[in-house]
Structure formats: C-alpha cells, structure tokens
C-alpha cells in the first residue's frame, strides 16, 4: 500500500472557471523523494495544498477523488488532525512566518508550542532542527530581518521540527544561493533516507537529477510524464511543453544534431555531461 495515494483528484478553486487539477492519480512510497516540475500555472502549488489539506479544507472549492496519506483520507479528516502528519513549506516564506514571534528560535518553536510539547523537549527539538538546516547562528535574529534565502531556511526548519511523516515543499530553494540549495537538498535526502516521504516542487533540474528518486512533470493540471529523473528531465516532450531544462541537456541536444554528442542518453548533471563530452 502506497504511503501517499491520490485517486482521480480533480479540484477547482471557488473563483476559477476551470479545474486546476484534473484527474490526478499518484502513488508515493514511504521514504520516497519525489520532485514535481512544471511551468507556471501547471497546478504544482495546488497539488501541494491538496496534500497538505489546505485544499479543500481551507480554500473550499469543488473537489472530487480521494487523497490518502498514511492510511487516512483527507476527506474524512479535519485540518487540525491532518497537519500533524503532513508539513508544508510555502513557496513564499513571507506568507508562512507567523508574525507573532520576535526571534527565529521562537518562530521555529511556534508549532511545537501549539501542540503542547514540554519545554525541555521543545528546546532540544528546535536546536536540533536549526543545526540540521545550518541556521543556529540566526537563533536570536528577528525573522523579518533575514534575507529571502535565510527566511526560506527558517520556514523549512519550522516544518521539519514538527517531524511530519510527509514533507511537502513548494520551491524551497527559490531564493537561495547554491550552498543553501545544496544543503536543503542534502537535508531533504537525509530525511527521506530516515523514512520521511518527500514531495518537492522545484525548478532546479540539475539538483533534482542528483537527489530525487522520481520526477513528475505536471502541465495544465495533469501529469504529463513521470519516471526516473534522467528519463523525464531529458525528454523532448518537456521542451515542446515549455519546461525549463538543464543547460547540459539543451547543449547536448544541440551537440547531438551537429554530431558532437555520441551517447544515446542526454545529460542532466555535470558528471553526465563530462562523461559524454570527454574526448
């Protein structure tokens, strides 16, 4: 039985004319790290909201089909119950930061406070989570004094500290420098290896190819392709549909036309590109 099981999910926001998700069927195994790619407006964030229970419990609208996580149905749960199991880091960290706390440390403790975790345990969990994501030195800063990338790390940490069994991340590295990006992918990979199930929306395909187990390409609310990262990320179908691809892939595709790339598979990562272009 898959840990995440989405059956025939169709969803329309209250004010949109067309469904944003159309008949999505998706299974994710426990401990799997799945990455979702897609152009703007594909429904990526809506899919995140659906997994996190905000669709439909918060946004309302019209929904059909079922979302099941860890044997529980979203339709039969309340949002309060659901968020204990599923954590979502928003695309825009500004929307997530509570505004109720003066320091990063307190901000990260906020969720634990709400579920009544004892003080000593709370302190330890917050410290552990901050050290995991490399933000210990930000503990006493105001969440609003941070750079965009630093805020994103705080937002991610405040979800990780809750230890959800399903971690949903909506472009968690969009404002980060490469070191931040590498660390986030590393932390997420580690979480997956420890059994956390991860669904991450991302545009940075080279990183996805290096870290994710599977890639889902979403377009116009439907799953266009899914499979192993290299397979999906080098597909010609992506180019036809306006997806972003790695410069290694696009350059090797052009090189292939000119007879300068001899391999069958196109590269996504630096290593793959070096292997193929090496004289």
């Amino acid at each position: 039985m898959a840990f995440v099981n989405i059956q025939n999910l169709t969803y329309k926001y209250p004010l949109t004319k067309e469904p944003v998700l159309k008949n999505i069927n998706l299974q994710v195994q426990e401990g799997e790290f799945v990455s979702v790619i897609g152009p703007n407006g594909a429904g990526k964030s809506t899919l995140c909201y659906a997994l996190a229970g905000f669709v439909p419990h918060f946004f309302k609208g019209e929904i059909s089909g079922e979302i099941e996580v860890d044997g529980k149905l979203s339709s039969k749960s309340t949002l309060d119950e659901w968020v204990l199991n599923v954590g979502l880091a928003f695309q825009n960290p500004f929307n997530q930061i509570s505004g109720a706390k003066y320091t990063v440390f307190e901000e990260i403790a906020f969720g634990l406070e709400n579920i009544g975790v004892p003080r000593d345990e709370m302190k330890k969990r917050v410290e552990d989570a901050m050290s995991l994501t490399g933000i210990s030195e930000l503990a006493d800063r105001s969440p609003y004094s941070l750079s965009g990338g630093q805020q994103q790390r705080v937002a991610l940490t405040s979800i990780l500290v809750m230890r959800p069994s399903l971690l949903v991340l909506d472009e968690p590295t969009s404002q980060m420098d490469p070191i931040g990006t590498r660390e986030v992918f590393g932390v997420v990979r580690k979480m997956a290896e420890e059994g956390m199930t991860v669904m991450m929306v991302e545009h940075k395909v080279e990183w996805i190819a290096n870290f994710a187990d599977r890639v889902i390409a979403l377009k116009d609310g439907q799953i266009l392709l899914e499979g192993k990262p290299n397979e999906v990320l080098t597909s010609d179908v992506l180019v036809e549909h306006g997806f972003g691809v790695s410069r290694y892939t696009s350059t090797a595709r052009e090189a292939k036309q000119r007879g300068l790339w001899k391999k069958n598979n196109l590269p996504v990562t630096l290593d793959e590109a070096v292997q193929g272009f090496k004289p």
């Binding site: 897609g38 152009p39 703007n40 965009g148 472009e171 969009s174 404002q175 545009h203 306006g242 997806f243």
Partner: peptide, 10 residues
C-alpha cells in the same frame, strides 16, 4: 531576483 519562481517561458 526577477527570475525567482519563474518558469522557462517567463
């Protein structure tokens, strides 16, 4: 940061 969160078309 004009390209943050933007797809290839944008």
């Amino acid at each position: 940061e004009p390209t943050t969160g933007q797809d290839a078309l944008n």
